[in-house]
């Protein structure tokens, strides 16, 4: 990949870090509040993002827009396996609510200087490692 393209990803990352901070989606308290149904804030963010996403991707496809490399937008859909989705999602949700951060915010909060996210990241790497170890025994 060309350096210029890598810089584009780098700048997009900076923008994402700022957006996640300004949106307060990185806040443990916002996530806690969401799971307690005490505020619309997080539902509003995800809802607007998804509605804008659906409409724009539709228009994108209808108008035949292409990516920077001239490719069509790929829509990779993983094989349907409800048992896997529910099980994996539930395990993820347990961790998400406990530490109040999903993978994006883990990195953003590290950037903020919250050092507790170092053991969080190490835990996430350990979890990924453990998945690789027991992968063949799980429903896929």
């Amino acid at each position: 990949m060309k350096v210029k393209r890598l810089i584009s990803f780098f700048l997009t990352g900076i923008l994402f870090g700022i957006i996640m901070s300004k949106s307060e989606a990185i806040s443990w308290f916002r996530i806690h509040e969401m799971f307690r149904f005490e505020s619309f804030h997080m539902y509003g963010i995800i809802g607007v993002a998804v509605i804008v996403g659906i409409i724009t991707l539709r228009v994108w496809k209808l108008m035949g827009f292409r990516t920077k490399d001239g490719d069509e937008v790929r829509n990779y859909v993983m094989p349907l396996n409800p048992k896997r989705h529910i099980l994996a999602g539930t395990i993820f949700g347990l961790g998400w609510a406990l530490i109040g951060a999903c993978p994006g915010p883990i990195y953003v909060l590290l950037g903020h200087g919250f050092l507790i996210f170092i053991p969080v990241l190490l835990g996430a790497i350990a979890g990924t490692w453990f998945y690789a170890m027991i992968k063949k025994h799980l429903p896929h």
């Binding site: 993983m78 993820f92 961790g95 998400w96 998945y131």
Partner: peptide, 29 residues
């Protein structure tokens, strides 16, 4: 922190995506 991170790491990799990959990208598609 380690326990929560472990669940996030394991769950997101087993499920092939986290909030950004499934809730934002996946639902948008």
């Amino acid at each position: 922190a380690i326990l929560g991170g472990f669940f996030v790491g394991f769950g997101s990799r087993y499920g092939n995506g986290c909030t950004s990959g499934h809730a934002i990208t996946g639902l948008s598609h």
